[in-house]
């Protein structure tokens, strides 16, 4: 008998997970030997990798801070990862205790860990889903219970889109999400980019990415900007993440070394 397609997969912690590798870059210990080995291989090829992760995480923090100040009280963080430090709900609930946050990730270990962290938090929850099935995320009862889609919502897809290739139709995914949002909602995106790199560098990076389980789909600034279709980009638009509303002028120096482009868009109307 053939296994039907709704049968779940088992957990394999013998393979590196991008969520735990990312934790390692950020200096966390929520990772296993396989993850560290993979992350170290990456660092050997791309020495800036930890800095990239830090810069991206700092962008996320500033973006959430910005959204809190803009009055957003509902957050849908897709590809949320291992809750290391500076999680969206910590930032948002410090700003406004009634803020509600739903974390979504495909990685079952990341989800289990998030669930432990969030135990007892009435205003935050986590669901295991795939960004590539936005309709399932939107229809998920736990998502529906936490988020009122008639009110503005911030959708965060930070450092995730480079795991979604064109064959998974990212533009369509974003359209589906956008259709569910009320006016005044926000979209936060960041992802790896090869803008401004030489052909040689590109080829080198490509080789590294190919070796990992999750090939990276780097995109140009124009491509990332196109994902904001239907949203109005807030200042300064799609930029290298350190350049996005930096706290100190000098923290935006050497910004393109961050490799990540990011931006925030607002749904008008």
């Amino acid at each position: 008998m053939q296994r039907p397609d709704w049968a779940p997969e088992t957990i394999d912690v013998e393979r590196p997970s991008v969520a735990r590798m990312y934790d390692y870059y950020l200096g966390g210990s929520h990772n296993f030997a396989v993850d560290r080995a993979a992350a170290q291989a990456m660092v050997a090829a791309v020495p800036e990798a930890p800095l990239m992760a830090q810069a991206n995480r700092a962008f996320l923090r500033r973006a959430v801070q910005f959204l809190c100040e803009a009055g957003i009280r509902q957050f849908l963080d897709i590809g949320s990862g291992i809750p290391t430090v500076g999680n969206v709900h910590e930032i948002a609930q410090r700003h406004a205790p009634d803020s509600r946050v739903v974390y979504v990730d495909v990685d079952p270990v990341a989800v289990a860990h998030s669930r432990e962290i969030l135990a007892g938090n009435e205003s935050a929850t986590v669901v295991q889903e795939d960004l590539r099935h936005p309709e399932r995320i939107l229809a998920h009862p736990d998502v529906r219970a936490m988020i009122d889609f008639s009110q503005p919502v911030a959708v965060l897809i930070v450092a995730v889109l480079h795991f979604v290739g064109e064959h998974d139709r990212p533009a369509e995914v974003l359209r589906t999400l956008r259709a569910a949002l009320a006016p005044g909602s926000y979209l936060v995106l960041s992802q790896a980019s090869d803008d401004g790199r030489s052909e040689a560098e590109r080829a080198e990076a490509q080789k590294v990415y190919q070796r990992t389980d999750n090939p990276l789909w780097v995109r140009s600034r124009a491509e990332l900007t196109a994902f904001f279709d239907g949203f109005e980009l807030v200042e300064p638009g799609v930029v290298w993440v350190p350049q996005w509303r930096p706290e100190t002028p000098d923290s935006a120096e050497d910004a393109e070394r961050a490799v990540f482009l990011g931006g925030v868009g607002r749904l008008g109307g």
Partner: peptide, 20 residues
């Protein structure tokens, strides 16, 4: 942190097996 992630992995595996 090691303990937490190990526990999370165990829980995830148990969940997956239960689901299976």
């Amino acid at each position: 942190e090691q303990e937490a992630i190990r526990r999370a992995a165990l829980i995830a595996r148990a969940d997956a097996e239960r689901a299976l």
